[in-house]
Amino acid sequence: MTSPYPMFSILGMLFGALTIAAGLIWLERRLLALWQDRYGPNRVGPFGLLQVVADGVKIFMKEDWIPPFADKPVFILAPAIIMLTALLSFAVLPVAPGIIISDLNIGLLFVLALSSLGVYSVVLAGWSSNNKYALLGGMRAAAQMISYEVFMGLSLMGVVLQAGSFSLPAIVDAQRELWFVIPQFLGFVLFLIAGLAETRRTPFDLPEAESELVAGYHSEYSGMKFGMFFVGEYLGVTLISAMITVLFFGGWLGPILPPIVWFLLKTLFFISCFILVRASLPRPRFDRLMSWGWKVMLPLALANLIVTGALVLAWR
């Protein structure tokens, strides 16, 4: 079901993803302000919408400084990786019927694979900065990623079992009767948590934990390189929200409104949830994070998989 005009889709997806990621900068600040009884950026343009443009101009004008002690090639490469992996994942995302760049039959695995690759960016950034705080941030990111990657994949296997396909449009189609959030509620919760961890957002922002590690893996970054980490993070948020929509909430499915609007609305809702979580929750201690991942989430994901598998077998 690949689009007849691939270039159109690619450009549209790229533009859409980046616009949403940029808009998130504004949205996050406004929502955080809302939940903290403030206004947030409201001076530049209507509702402060042009704040994004102002920030963009600012960040482009800033000195792009590479510390003399840094490993220069790796230091430059690191922020590019996160952008690259995040954007590539959008290739398999079904926005609406026919609006997809590439309908891979292993779309879900592709997304999981790329999100695993994304951690290289953080680890390499921490390593190449040649700074103890950055290195600690990178190490944490690696550890966190390994721990949460495992049950992230496992939590989705229930969905795959039920849909019988790794293809994302196929999974959406499989939800015409019932959104997978109902039968796979546990899988949804696990994926939501893993997704938060995957995007390194509060409460799982230990790699950059500003109260202990200055700014973690991107302590030494400035200018647009820092901006790329930032955009990469928002792309990740968008992607995970979109994946939740696709995997558990029926993707573009919905009455009356056109499918793309449904998809965007659902995605936006989960993005807002991400921001709400950031507004509410404190950061756990690192050892707690690790033991939570291995001792609670992983067994739960396994249990979910076994139960789902058993039920699916029994059903047949």
């Binding site: 809302l34 939940w35 009884d37 403030r38 206004y39 979580v277 509410s280 929750l281």
Partner: peptide, 22 residues
């Protein structure tokens, strides 16, 4: 308690903002 926290924070959506528009 985590869910309660999230809920209470969400309820702030409907509260008056304290920012003074200096």
């Amino acid at each position: 308690s985590i869910l309660k926290t999230i809920w209470y924070v969400f309820l702030h959506t409907f509260q008056k903002r304290i920012t003074v528009q200096y």
